[in-house]
Simulated assay, not measured.
Amino acid sequence: MSAETVRVLASSQQLREVEVLATEQGFVAKVRAGMTDRLLRADRGGARTFARIDTAAKYLRSLGVGRISVDLSNLPVLAQRALFETRGGPRRRQG
């Protein structure tokens, strides 16, 4: 699904769900409109892939998407470790 289609569907409140999925290549957005699920497409073809989840969220917000869900179940093990560790060991909460 193209970004322009997502923008039109979002503005007319016809999106049922937008889910950001973790993949080996990065994060992709699965868009559900009606009974159809499609991946957000890159301008040059193929799925639009984001290196970071916050980049995906900001881009979807710029298209008018107000709510997303996130599925991290396929997040590669190494990437999971990177989320919670730094060179100095586990991240510690401050405050």
Rank of each mutant, 00 (worst) to 15 (best):
Q80N: 11
Q94C: 10
T36A: 13
V18T: 07
Q14P: 02
R91G: 03
L83E: 09
Q14H: 06
A56V: 02
G95H: 04
T36I: 15
S62T: 15
R48M: 06
Q13R: 12
G34C: 15
R32G: 00
L75R: 09
R87V: 14
R87M: 15
Q80T: 14
Q14G: 03
A82E: 04
V18S: 04
G46Y: 02
T5I: 01
G26F: 01
F50D: 00
N74F: 04
T5S: 01
L60F: 11
L72W: 04
T23Y: 01
G88W: 13
A10N: 03
S11R: 07
L83G: 11
S69Q: 14
E85G: 05
R41M: 08
G64C: 13
R81P: 12
A51Q: 10
E4A: 11
R87L: 13
V28T: 15
L9R: 04
V65H: 15
T49Q: 15
D43Q: 03
A47G: 02
G95T: 04
G34L: 09
L75G: 06
A57N: 07
D54S: 10
S2D: 15
A3N: 01
L40G: 05
V20I: 13
A82G: 00
L72Y: 06
R38L: 01
F84R: 02
L15N: 07
V18F: 09
E4R: 10
P76I: 14
G89K: 10
L60G: 13
R81I: 11
A29I: 11
L9T: 05
L75T: 06
I53S: 14
K30D: 09
L78S: 07
E17G: 00
A33L: 00
R44S: 15
T23K: 04
A56I: 09
V18R: 13
I68Q: 10
A29C: 13
D37T: 08
A51Y: 07
D43A: 02
V65I: 15
Y59V: 02
P90N: 02
R16E: 01
L21P: 00
I53P: 06
R32T: 02
R41P: 04
S11Q: 12
A42L: 03
S62K: 10
E4L: 12
E24M: 05
G64M: 08
Q80W: 14
